[in-house]
Amino acid sequence: MTTMNMIEAINSGLDNMMARDDDVVIMGEDVGYFGGVFRATAGLQEKHGKTRCFDTPISECGIIGVAVGMAAYGMRPVPEIQFADYIYPGLDQLVSEAARLRYRSAAEFTSAITVRSPFGGGIFGGQTHSQSPESMFTHVCGLKTVIPSTPYDAKGLLISAIEDNDPVMFFEPKRIYNGPFTGYYDKPVEPWSKFESSEVPEDYYKIPIGKANIVREGEAVTVLAYGTMVHVANAVVEEHGVDAEVIDLRTLVPLDIETIEASVKKTGRCLIIHEATRTSGFGAELSALVQERCFYHLEAPIERVTGFDTPYPHSLEWAYFPGPVRIGEALEKIVGELTS
């Protein structure tokens, strides 16, 4: 075991996979010699060679299209999109191509690609370095979507994603690359090394895709979150002394519906939290599923706490972010229904 932050854990997962499988190649803007703008691929080119980890032209359409082509040959590309906000030029290749290749070729061709991309806000990155576009991809049939919340999970999930024979969107919550974030922008960041989930084996291990993690057991309410918001949710739950069950979804598609269903049937309440904008966000899907499957167990309306339906603002970041106040209010409201 070594102590790793999330970047180091991702780097280690990539390194393991490149060593195990010659077909794993990494490509993206600035990922080669420089090792990526967040350093996620640092040292990989030097260690595995220039044709295994290389820079690309600034063309997200090209990066994803080429990855699909390399996968068609039989390789396992792991393209990086520098920021999720820059993925849109590659959308056609993802939506019309990577996602549907298996289906339209009757599985003659597949796209075993893992698209890594930092996402989410909290770094004063303005509207082009802060977005959470995950629901655009969960809406596309044929793409899997994975979002880790700790270094340990990041590595294990990334390895599963790379080994998966379907295209996987792997969104990395950049705000928590260096340490978990509780939603208080004015408090110093605590490094991952202070937390158990930074204990990461140097060797290969997997965390299955499609399996959620109950990070806190409780009886009063089920809280569904992923990425950065898992930590914010946990902190708020502690602060309010609510006996909540906090579930880190880890994978949005395919969703671990069993874990969610069992928990909501137990607690009778469900609070959904994500940073992404609200309308047609993944919370809407979660809410519909919970309602469909747990309706007769619900003791209060399902609540959603999300980012506002505006472009991500620069200066008003902390007014925008679904932080402790917004979550706390929803939490009190939903457990308040207990006594009424």
Binding site: F124, Y185, D186, F308, T310, P313, H314, S315, L316, E317, W318, A319, Y320
Partner: peptide
């Protein structure tokens, strides 16, 4: 910039 909260919050919308 600081904490960034310089504009009335309704301007965000």
């Amino acid at each position: 910039l600081g904490h960034g909260l310089h504009q009335p919050f309704e301007t965000m919308f």
